[in-house]
Amino acid sequence: MAVIDLANPTRFLTLVNRVLPWLIGATALVFAYGLYRVAGAPDDYQQGATVKIMYLHVPGAWLGMMGWGVMTVAALGTLVWRHPLADVAGKAAAPIGAGFTFICLATGMLWGRPMWGTYWVWDARLTSVLVLFLLYLGMLALYWTAEDPNRSARAAAILALVGAVNIPIIKFSVDWWNTLHQPASVVRMGGAAIDASILVPLLIMALAFTLLFFTLHFAAMRNEILRRRVRSMRMMQAREVPV
């Protein structure tokens, strides 16, 4: 049995090395343009300049959820196809997804203080994101405590799938719980009610954050492949010492 199939990851490494500079450049360019558009975007008639926090908060929420989506696809790759890169992808996505979820929570709190008068309200959306963040922390804890990467990859894949099944249920129950306890939220943002002068910069920022996610993800996957290569080389070395 091959401990780790190195042929495929090697090809992936050359691909990453070729693509990564372009990705970094594209991310920087889109971020620069997005921030320029954000600076020029008008204030919201109700929320004033604090609407500028939205350009960070909303992409953070999207990518926090997308991170779990990446982990779910990677989990299927690990369990169903046994693809050697799948658990590398899953493991690399976990801290990045947790980071973006944290961005969503922190900016949400900083947005809530001027708008709601308090850093935290048990608003349905914030609460769902909080539970998502807890799930991410559980996933990171699982990776931290496991020694054998193969074993932890399988366990993490199962947890990712269970989480993917549960996240909609959690979202639904938190919404239900919230309407039971808090009939109306202070700030309402209708999806279609956003004006193009705000929506376009938001979409550009979302694209910038998405590019950032994949740049970081590719780089983290490269690290993980190298880490496993180091591990297998050390095991070879340990095997050879007595001979």
Partner: peptide, 8 residues
Amino acid sequence: LGPHAIFI
């Protein structure tokens, strides 16, 4: 940035 600049 208005009165809430610090939060932004």
